[in-house]
């Protein structure tokens, strides 16, 4: 007997229970798939939405202005009603083969299953300080914006008191406001490009509302500090003039990168050129989205496409 034939086979396995995975699961079920396993590494469904406590979600999808957790809740409730979707929480996928054999860890167990069709909805990673090549020392107090968001909104910890944000991505803007509301002083947001990378709405709501300076076409040339961040050197890219900003914390909000380590393990090097008809990718692991609503819309199509594949096979 081969290894494959001993394995339990599921019709559709979805890796990732964030907005993409949840939308794909519901849509696949509505399109007729009645055996779905949704794997989520956290102990809750919702993915990054759980830490995005700010409003602005659901305007397109639900014609309502919801926070991230509220937006997630609508899908979580729907999934709970569908018995054909088995949700496996605290389930961390450690390997994937090109035959769609999935190995995952869950508390006390190492499970191995085979999928007839597979949807990867593994989200993305934040670009780090190292990736944007910021010179200087390596003291404590340098965080990606999303990590700081998790510290404040989930763990209830304030990352610092005097903050400089590198990059004007939406998470950085949102965090500038959040930190200000929590009593920290956000000294500045420093953006390399000549315009903000974030939604213009977020510039108004998060910076203008709180008189936080946004330096466009500037860069943080160096981070100083021995044990803890002490200051940064900011350079005007037009004039090359520099000035210093004292701070104890630097947040990096310099973009997101699709997370596809598992697919790479299965031999896929480019998610836009997948040749297997039974492997699908959606959400931020396929491309970086501005809005969760758009992730939902596209991931539903992915769920339907997987259902269509299963119907034909």
């Amino acid at each position: 007997m081969t290894r494959d034939s001993r394995l339990v086979t599921r019709d559709l396995v979805i890796v990732g229970g964030g907005p993409a995975g949840m939308a794909a699961a519901v849509a696949a079920h509505e399109a007729g798939v009645n055996d779905i396993l949704l794997l989520e590494r956290d102990q809750y469904l919702g993915g990054i939405l759980n830490q995005c406590i700010h409003p602005g979600f659901g305007l397109q999808r639900f014609k309502a202005n919801l926070t991230g957790p509220e937006y997630a809740d609508r899908f979580i409730k729907k999934i709970e009603e569908i018995r054909d979707i088995e949700v496996s929480l605290r389930s961390f996928v450690v390997s994937l083969t090109k035959d769609k054999i999935i190995t995952y860890l869950k508390p006390g167990k190492l499970e191995e299953i085979k999928a007839k069709a597979l949807i990867m909805a593994t989200g993305c990673r934040e670009r780090t300080r190292e990736m944007i090549h910021t010179a200087g020392t390596r003291p404590a107090g340098i965080y990606t914006a999303g990590l700081a968001q998790k510290m404040i909104n989930i763990e209830g910890l304030l990352p610092g008191l005097e903050i400089v944000v590198i990059g004007s991505g939406d998470i950085g803007l949102i965090m500038a406001r959040r930190l200000t509301l929590e009593g920290a002083k956000v000294k500045a947001v420093i953006e390399l490009q000549k315009e903000s990378r974030g939604l213009v709405r977020n510039v108004v709501l998060c910076l203008t509302d709180f008189s936080i300076p946004l330096y466009l076409h500037h860069r943080v040339a160096r981070i100083y500090g021995r044990d803890r961040v002490e200051k940064v050197l900011v350079e005007n890219l037009e004039t090359h003039e520099t000035f210093e900003l004292a701070c104890d914390t630097v947040l990096v909000s310099a973009g997101l990168i699709p997370e596809n380590e598992l697919l790479e393990m299965a031999g896929v090097s480019d998610v836009s050129k997948i040749t297997s008809p039974d492997i699908f990718v959606c959400g931020n692991s396929y491309k970086i989205y501005d809005l969760a609503d758009s992730v939902t819309r596209d991931s539903e199509k992915t769920g339907q496409a997987a259902a269509e594949y299963l119907r034909r096979s």
């Binding site: 406590i53 409003p55 202005n65 926070t67 957790p69 909104n153 989930i154 763990e155 209830g156 709501l205």
Partner: peptide
Amino acid sequence: APMRVLSSTVLARGLELKMVPVR
């Protein structure tokens, strides 16, 4: 008079999460 929705978190006691998001 400018108006804004405010979102934040409140500290929980005896619940499964430490912080509960509110708006």
